[in-house]
């Protein structure tokens, strides 16, 4: 039963959706404090290379590799964030884009470690490693009626799903906290926020670092899901793609980034039946979006509208008092 329902193709796409959601959130976090950073592809690369090199050369467990990858990216985020945040707006965007390119050139030229443009192959695969340990202790996916590759991708998707739920929960909470309100205040008006006693440097570096940490985390996961990385994966195309996730979905709320990442990943696959023309539609959707809904698909008023509908329905339930009579 389960075996028939799970197609590795769909599981694969869902795993890319989940990784892209983390990337979308990483840029949403920096945008939420009013900063436009295009360096997330670079941070993603740092996370990916750190984790891949550690697991290949030093046989570090994957989980530790991924965490270290994220931390190293986060540390770079602090180092880059402090000087870069003297800039704002497009100047920050250009500086961070430059940082991303510098990272790519380092990956290309540091051949003794990164193998240059050839890329790193043989990165341990997240699903296959877990599968190996599980079979070693005597677990057989046949019990669930699954083929090996179905089971491997099921593992990957479930791990990513758990991580995603945790990250979304964390950032939804943070948005309601003092930190989130400080971010929002800085985004609205930096001077006003400062005059109200918000330490803007601290909060700006914090949001920049959180973005870098998340991007590095996503990069490390990417390396272990693809099992192969090369510097070309972390070029500026990637930075723009990540930005599109958030801008398309709506950069005001976290759900926008999530929706954007999911939509932009699934659409090219869903449009496969029109083969060569699918990227035309991709482009057309982007143009129409920016023309008619520049704030992105999901914004605060749309969320409130949803909320109202839900409340309205519940309200009528209570109002008629049917439940009491029964």
């Amino acid at each position: 039963m389960l075996g028939e329902l799970l197609n590795p193709y769909h599981l694969q796409i869902v795993s890319f959706v989940l990784i892209n959601i983390i990337l979308g959130i990483s840029i949403y976090i920096t945008l939420s404090s009013g900063q436009l950073s295009l360096g997330n592809a670079g941070f993603m690369g740092i996370g990916a290379y750190t984790s891949a090199l550690l697991t290949i050369n030093f046989e570090v467990p994957i989980i530790l590799g991924i965490i270290l990858g994220a931390l190293v990216a986060g540390i770079f985020g602090i180092l880059i964030g402090i000087p870069a945040l003297r800039l704002s707006g497009v100047y920050l965007a250009i500086a961070t884009l430059g940082f991303g390119e510098v990272m790519r050139v380092i990956f290309v030229n540091w051949e003794s470690v990164t193998q240059g443009a050839i890329g790193l192959s043989g990165v341990p695969h997240l699903g296959r490693e877990v599968f190996k340990t599980l079979t070693a202790i005597g677990f057989d996916p046949e019990i669930l009626g699954l083929k090996n590759n179905q089971f491997i991708y099921l593992i990957v998707v479930s791990i990513l799903l758990l991580i995603n739920i945790f990250i979304v929960w964390f950032f939804v909470r943070q948005n309601k906290s003092r930190v989130g309100r400080a971010f929002a205040a800085i985004k609205m008006d930096e001077k006003a926020a400062e005059s109200m006693g918000i330490d803007i440097t601290y909060y700006k570096v914090l949001s920049f670092t959180q973005g870098a940490l998340l991007a590095g985390f996503a990069g490390a996961l990417y390396a272990h899901v693809m099992a192969y990385i090369s510097p070309a994966d972390f070029a500026y195309h990637r930075a723009i793609e990540i930005l599109i996730f958030s801008v398309f979905g709506g950069s005001e709320v976290i759900w926008g980034a999530i929706f954007g990442a999911a939509f932009m990943t699934i659409m090219p696959e869903a449009l496969r039946f029109i083969s060569e023309y699918r990227y035309m539609i991709y482009g057309a959707i982007l143009i129409l979006m920016m023309a008619f809904r520049p704030q992105g698909i999901i914004d605060v008023s749309l969320l409130q509208w949803f909320k109202k509908i839900i409340k309205f329905r519940k309200g009528t339930d209570h109002g008629t008092g049917i439940k009491k009579r029964h």
């Binding site: 197609n7 193709y9 599981l11 694969q12 796409i13 994966d233 696959e269 496969r272 060569e276």
Partner: peptide, 21 residues
């Protein structure tokens, strides 16, 4: 059964999964 990868590893892998399954 001809499928497009757009030169991207992710898409190549996804579509390979589609074909293999």
């Amino acid at each position: 059964d001809i499928q497009d990868s757009a030169g991207k590893q992710e898409q190549a892998l996804s579509v390979a999964q589609k074909l293999m399954s």
